[in-house]
Design a protein around this nucleic acid. Structure first.
Lengths: 196, 196
DNA sequence: GTCTATACGAAGATAGAC
DNA sequence: GTCTATCTTCGTATAGAC
């Protein structure tokens, strides 16, 4: 197998395992056995575990950008973009009920470890934050755009954490509905919206 | 030093360290050096690390019950009780910005570790959930009491996680104000509330 | 009750053969 | 590039002296 392919396999497996079991709890042996290589082979591609973490965060940033781009391409309006964000909680609910949000849980773990990579992991939040703010600004909420983006991010984090703790999928559905109702109330130009 | 006192010191130190650095990342050596005993002395009081975790959760449950009781004693109404809950995010904001919520972050870590103690840690959420629901029921929101309690819990979790990731204390203040405004809108009998 | 000394295993990291 | 073998450190846990 080529070096590029193996390296990609390592990062893909590490990405999943860091999400499902945490960064610290994931050993090289776990990643190695998941993709069928030896532990020793690791160090040809990465010198330290921190380098793998950095590659995982970089991969997540790239994939998140692609996801946000696809939402913009595939939906007709900023309002639909915001609904796509809320829908992510439903689409990923099986894993969220088991492991929470991959971004939030990683940031929390790195914060407790006082790990230098926390800043890079937080970029994932910043990416969502600025994209969401852009959508709200498009909807005429320019002055409040960032606060509204943070509020929506906050709610997604709360739903993910509580769903993982209580293992309750009905809760996710109810809160996503409430989130969409809140979004409707924030979109002054949306059709069918009751005027305040 | 007496056995009871030493045992209490161990649990107190473990409680703090599990919160600040995580359960797995905290070694016996860390707890031992924090309270000035030897590692070996540990096993006179606890046989395994899991036993310490159990004692920590039990301690947190007891202290949470005391906290909720004190809120009921010291405030005049169910509405004030709910405001006390929201105020907890302000009172503990320094630590929340560094480590998130002690309940949510512990549950997330135990979920990823597939640890048996997750159920016990979740009891902490259940304790808050039922107490909050009781307050909402007192305010005449009986049919929605549990959903309202879950919504408030959800928001507290979202605020704590995002505050820890972004290390932003202004964000906590803004979201707590929004939380209080939401609470006002949920209290039909509260004085000064604008009627919908 | 608390200590020192130590056994044991797990995990990150390295060396060198193929 | 990938492997096996090995080094080293660390962390849980145990044994036994004081």
């Amino acid at each position: 197998m080529g070096a590029v392919a193996t390296k990609r396999h390592i990062v893909e497996a590490a990405d999943s395992l860091f999400y499902e079991h945490g960064f610290e709890a994931t050993a090289f042996a776990d990643i190695a056995s998941a993709i069928g290589i030896s532990r020793g082979n690791f160090y040809y591609h990465f010198r330290t575990k921190d380098e793998i973490l950095d590659a995982v965060i970089t991969r997540r940033l790239e994939r998140t950008r692609q996801l946000l781009d696809s939402w913009e391409r595939e939906t007709g309006s900023a309002r639909d973009c915001l609904l796509s964000f809320a829908g992510m909680l439903i689409a990923n609910r099986t894993k969220i009920m088991l492991y929470g949000c991959p971004v939030g849980s990683l940031c929390l773990e790195l914060a407790k470890l006082d790990h230098l990579a926390l800043g890079r992991a937080t970029e994932l939040f910043t990416l969502f934050r600025e994209w969401l703010a852009t959508q709200f600004a498009t909807l005429g909420r320019g002055p409040d755009a960032d606060a509204l983006a943070m509020h929506l991010l906050m709610r997604s984090q709360g739903v993910a954490t509580l769903a993982a703790a209580l293992r309750d999928d009905g809760f996710i559905e109810r809160e996503v509905e409430a989130m969409k109702a809140w979004l409707d109330a924030q979109c002054p130009t949306a059709p069918g919206r009751p005027v305040r």
